[in-house]
Amino acid sequence: MVPSVSNSSENLHPPPRRVALFVTCLVDLFRPAVGFAAIKLLEEAGCTVEVPPLQVCCGQPAYNTGDRATTRAIAMQVMDAFEGYDAVVAPSGSCGGMLSHHYPGLFDDDPALKARAENLAGRSYELISFLVDVLGVKKVAAHYDGAVTYHDSCSGLRELGVKEQPRQLLGSVQGLELREMKTPEVCCGFGGTFCVKYPEISNAMVGEKSADITASGAGTLLAGDLGCLMNMAGKLQREGSAVRVRHVAEVLAGMGDLPAIGEPETGAR
């Protein structure tokens, strides 16, 4: 099974060719497959993908704790790491949104840095919206057997407008049936450090989410942000659910045969 990506011919602009992958901390540490899936999807859409080695974190932990000085320092590091690429693409709405929506506001007092931040913001994207909205990808040739449900992660949905794009691409995956939850747009309760600072509230939220997932009848849960996915996978598995949890890019790239999040390697047991 070789997934392929077909380009739209009605694409108005030539696609940005030299693309930097912003791997994100969680993908790097917990789910490398998402990074490989992203590269595969981008390359098959005609991009040359590089992984700048000096990248670390986008700074959200500091930003959301109110530590602006550290956030600025990290943002400057990120701006250096991604200098010169046509596009910076992250398999995450929250990290992508940090670069494209929040960096410029960090440098209101420094026009030169603000201009740099705005430049980076203007070429930073979340993976799926980049594929669909910028590259004009309309379908993938992947195969995935069974019913899936899709959770709209908050930053991607409300900051970046990622809603129909993943559904459009999932609609082209052979064998896949999409079963919507009642409230796919309600937060799963992850919220970065929120889930450990307020674990009881987070648990109530993810408990409700897992009930909604279960009620959809789908055997697989997909989303575009690894933090949310780990949170929901952890809850489903603690409840003994058989629902499998994967990043949407894995399925679109034909990597849906890997062990799901929180599942052991085949044969490890």
Partner: peptide, 30 residues
């Protein structure tokens, strides 16, 4: 073996209510 943790030191806020997914073998993405 399990693919996930039922409890983890320093992550009690997480594992009190949720399992914690373990990374698959093979190393970090980078």
């Amino acid at each position: 073996v399990e693919g996930r943790y039922h409890s983890l030191p320093l992550a009690g806020g997480w594992t009190r209510f949720r399992d914690f997914p373990a990374p698959p073998p093979g190393g970090t993405f980078h």
